[in-house]
């Protein structure tokens, strides 16, 4: 096959699902967490935000979620400026943020409950998503009866149940053990392939970022800026073990490490 002839003027890129313009965040008390972040998050893709601990990844994600006001700059979701949380975005929390007094089913249905969806309807939807994340049979259990990994599956199901187009995930797998984590990463890949949603995925693990993301955004140390955007060129339909041994995967991990090294004391 001959090399494709590149058109001189590329077709205009589709509008990004989320775009962050000049976001700066200074916490009361003077900690400058973010300093002029400009980023676009393409539709239907998983973008990882990677950076040293304390650099402002959670801060950026919460600003995009509308949970935290920015000091300067704006966030556009689907072309509209956001000023608070919205139905098109759902959040997966690092510490799961489940209600300990609610069953798995009620936790998964909680977003719908807050939206006033009738009980029978929201429970039918929640049941589907409980099954989707592999927790069928645990509907009547309480969070304290589940392992960390299962709890985060509940958190994920809750975010899926409200059918948002953008999923904001803050280090969702950092509090679960290594084996569970790998299984999660594999499941996440099929989720991205099947759901046609836009994922913003915060992590501090280079391997995790390269494994799950089609684009990896590197943030510098505080006050954080975008230091690099890397798009690992890996076909996601390979078997998991083949991805982890693929030269492109290994190259991307290495080049990100070279980029981040300077921020490590």
């Amino acid at each position: 096959m001959t090399a494709a002839i590149l058109p001189l003027a590329p077709a205009p890129a589709p509008e990004p699902m989320v775009s962050v313009r000049g976001i700066t965040k200074t916490y009361p008390g003077g900690v400058e967490a973010l300093s002029g972040i400009d980023l676009d998050f393409p539709r239907g893709e998983l973008t990882a935000l990677l950076g040293p601990s304390g650099c402002g990844k959670t801060t950026l994600l919460k600003i995009i979620a509308g949970l935290l006001p920015a000091t300067k700059g704006e966030v556009l979701v689907d072309g509209r400026k956001v000023s608070g949380p919205g139905p098109e975005r759902a959040f997966v929390f690092q510490d799961f943020a489940l209600l300990p007094w609610a069953t798995v089913l009620r936790n998964v249905a909680f977003g719908l409950e807050l939206r006033g969806v009738a009980r029978s309807e929201r429970e039918a939807i929640a049941e589907r998503h409980v099954a989707e994340v592999g927790l069928k049979g645990f509907e009547k259990r309480y969070p304290h009866e589940l392992s960390g990994g299962m709890r985060q599956r509940v958190g994920l199901a809750r975010a899926l149940a409200v059918n948002a187009e953008v999923l904001l995930m803050d280090e969702p797998f950092s509090a679960v053990d290594e084996q569970t984590r790998r299984k999660f990463q594999e499941d996440l890949l099929s989720l991205v392939a099947n759901q046609r949603k836009t994922f913003l995925f915060v992590t501090h693990s280079i391997e995790e970022a390269v494994y799950v993301a089609s684009r990896v955004v590197l943030l510098s140390r505080r006050p954080s800026r975008v230091s690099q955007v890397i798009a690992p060129d890996i076909a996601r339909d390979m078997a998991p073990d083949r991805i982890r041994r693929h030269p492109a995967y290994l190259d991307a991990v290495e080049s990100i490490w070279q980029g981040l090294k300077q921020y490590v004391d």
Binding site: P85, G86, P87, D95, L99, F110, V162
Partner: peptide, 25 residues
């Protein structure tokens, strides 16, 4: 817990819902 209230806000709970369904329990 701060993150529980944040969760309620992220999933569009009103102030009244946050009090009744999260803060009081």
């Amino acid at each position: 817990p701060v993150s529980m209230v944040e969760m309620g806000r992220a999933f569009l709970g009103s102030r009244r819902q946050l009090i009744a369904k999260i803060i009081l329990p």
